[in-house]
Every structure is written in C-alpha cells, then in structure tokens.
C-alpha cells in the first residue's frame, strides 16, 4: 500500500516533468510556452480591442458634433486610433484631389473610397496580427500533447517489457506523465480556441464599424464635392 502513497506524491507537475524523458519534456516545454504566449495575446487583445471600441465611440460622437471638418481634422487627426487614421486618410485624399484646377468628381469619389477602404484594411490587419497564433495553438496543441502522450505510453510499455511486471506501480507513473502532456496541450488549446472565436467576432465588429464610418464620411465628402462644383 505504501507505493500508492508515493505514487500520489509524484503527481505534482514538477515530479511528472522530471520523470519524463526528453521528447515528452520538449513537448511539455513547447506547450507551456505556447500557453504563456497565448495568454499574453489574450490579455493584450482584451485591452486593445476594448480601447479601440471606446475610441471609435467617442470619435464618432465628436465627429457628429463637429461643424467644420478641417477644424476637426486639425484637432483629432493626431490621435493614435484606427478611426482617426481612417478619417485622416479620407481627408488627405480629399485635399489632394481637390487642389488641382479641374476636379474629376467621379475619380475623386473612387479615390476617396479606395483610400479609406485601404486605411480600414490596414488597421484591421494590424489589429488581427496575433490572432493567427491563437488559431494555430488551438488547432495544433492537442495534437502535440497527444504526440507526447503516445510517446510516453510507448515508453512505459517498454518498461513493462523490461521489468516483466505489469503491476500498477510499474505502469502508472509512465502513463501519468504521458497523460500530463495531453493535459498541457488541452490547457493551452482550450483558451486559445475560445479567445480566437471571441476576438474574431470582435475584430469583425470593429471592421464593420470602421467601414460604416468610412462610408458615412465618404458620403459627406461626396456631398461637399457636389456643392463646391
């Protein structure tokens, strides 16, 4: 009965890690780093998406209340926010297109739409930069953990064969250490998948709001283009 106590004592992560051989150790270390980076991305993404949404809301309010676009541009263009960059991309393109002697209205509208669309796409690209890592971890980490498990179980079968003894005391530590690899894999993968789905949804909503703002601004500029003509 005593060996059961010792087996229970070796269930701590450190002991399981130290018992494993180097392949399983490599798997465990890799998965642990993946989990670390996953959580770093999750946390930083939480901050960033929240800040972006808040910036969009306040910027739209200010934009609606502003009378003069040029004056508002001077005030707001320098902000480090995606929506401010989209706005200033539109304003920059507008100024470039309207400084010439003859104004091609159709071409100006197209260029305005293109410039702001490009600005939106760039902002979304920048935001979604780390998301692919979450997707990769969510898809691959269980398999990597499973690889460690299969390797560890193969090894414990080998030790059964070597000792010619199938008692639980011989088999259990190897299997426990092998299953620990899968446990770490799932530990890394589950938050990654959840966060990936949630942040993909959040990024899509940010992109839609930016596009709506760009469309509205484009409509405003387009109206002014007709008035100035």
């Amino acid at each position: 009965m005593l060996f059961l106590n010792t087996a229970a004592a070796t269930m701590s992560p450190v002991a399981l890690f130290l018992q494993a051989d180097w392949v399983v150790r490599g798997v465990m270390i890799g998965l642990l780093l993946a989990s670390l980076w996953t959580w770093a991305i999750i946390l930083s993404f939480g901050f960033r998406v929240g800040a972006v949404k808040k910036g969009i809301a306040s910027f739209e309010t200010e934009y609606r209340e502003a009378d003069d676009i040029d004056e508002f541009h001077r005030r707001a263009a320098g902000r480090d926010q995606p929506i401010a960059r989209v706005f200033s991309a539109g304003v920059t393109e507008w100024r470039r297109s309207t400084t010439g002697k003859s104004i091609d209205r159709g071409g100006t509208r197209d260029r305005l739409a293109t410039a702001m669309g490009a600005a939106v796409a760039q902002e979304i690209d920048r935001l979604a930069d780390r998301l692919n890592f979450l997707a990769t971890v969510g898809a691959v980490a269980p398999f990597v953990g499973l690889f460690g498990t299969v390797w560890g179980i193969m090894r414990s079968f080998t030790s059964i064969a070597a000792e010619q003894n199938s008692s639980l005391a011989v088999v259990a530590p190897g299997i426990a250490e092998a299953l620990f690899a899968t446990a770490i894999g799932l530990f890394a993968a589950i938050p990654a998948v959840i966060a990936y789905n949630r942040y993909s949804h959040g990024i899509n909503r940010v992109e839609q709001r930016l596009n709506r703002f760009a469309d509205g601004f484009h409509a405003t500029l387009s109206r002014r283009l007709e008035m100035e003509a």
Binding site: S12, P13, V14, L32, W39, A40, I41, L43, S44, R48
Partner: peptide, 27 residues
C-alpha cells in the same frame, strides 16, 4: 512586442507560475 503585449505577457507569466505553484503539493 507592443506595450500591451508586454503587460499581457507579464500577467500571463505570473498567472502560470501561480497555477504551477498551486498544483505543486511537492513544493
């Protein structure tokens, strides 16, 4: 690393270490 990512990484590392200690009765 951006600043928010560095903060997130630090918080995640602290959280992992905390979980690790919590799960290590051997310590």
């Amino acid at each position: 690393l951006t600043r928010s990512e560095a903060i997130g990484l630090a918080v995640a590392a602290i959280g992992h270490i905390g979980l690790f200690v919590f799960l290590s009765p051997a310590m």
